[in-house]
């Protein structure tokens, strides 16, 4: 019962977050400051999802050699930046993870 309550309330709030501005746009005036903020959303939001995953290993901050996630992440970042190819980024990132783990094991 508790799980269904979470699913339905969580789902309803998530839908409203996604739908609200599509619906309200034009009906309310969006301040200039907000408009200028919009273009930074993907850079800031995605980066906040990516960084912790590379710098933390089993919940502990680590930039040492044996944090293969950090090094694989750096390799993948270089490939993502220059390659501009999503599939290549994924393949090289996973490959680097396995490689570094193998080297340092």
């Amino acid at each position: 019962m508790k799980v269904w309550t979470v699913i339905i309330l969580g789902g309803a709030i998530t839908f409203l977050l996604r739908f609200s501005m599509l619906w309200l746009f034009g009906k309310i005036e969006i301040p200039n400051l907000v408009k200028r903020a919009l273009r930074f959303i993907p850079a800031a939001a995605l980066s906040a999802l990516v960084f912790p995953a590379f710098f933390y290993q089993d919940g502990v901050f680590s930039m040492t050699l044996d944090n293969e996630r950090f090094w694989a992440g750096m390799v993948a970042a270089v490939v993502a930046w220059y390659g501009k190819n999503i599939l290549l980024t994924l393949a090289v990132g996973m490959g680097a993870l396995y490689l570094f783990r193998w080297i340092w094991s």
């Binding site: 850079a43 800031a44 960084f51 930046w81 501009k84 990132g93």
Partner: peptide
Amino acid sequence: IPLTFLALLTPAVRDKPTVLAALSAG
């Protein structure tokens, strides 16, 4: 999972202000 977000992040980082936004958020 983070690799997917990384692949989406790089096209969103186009100039100095977006680079700074991404780095500081990270």
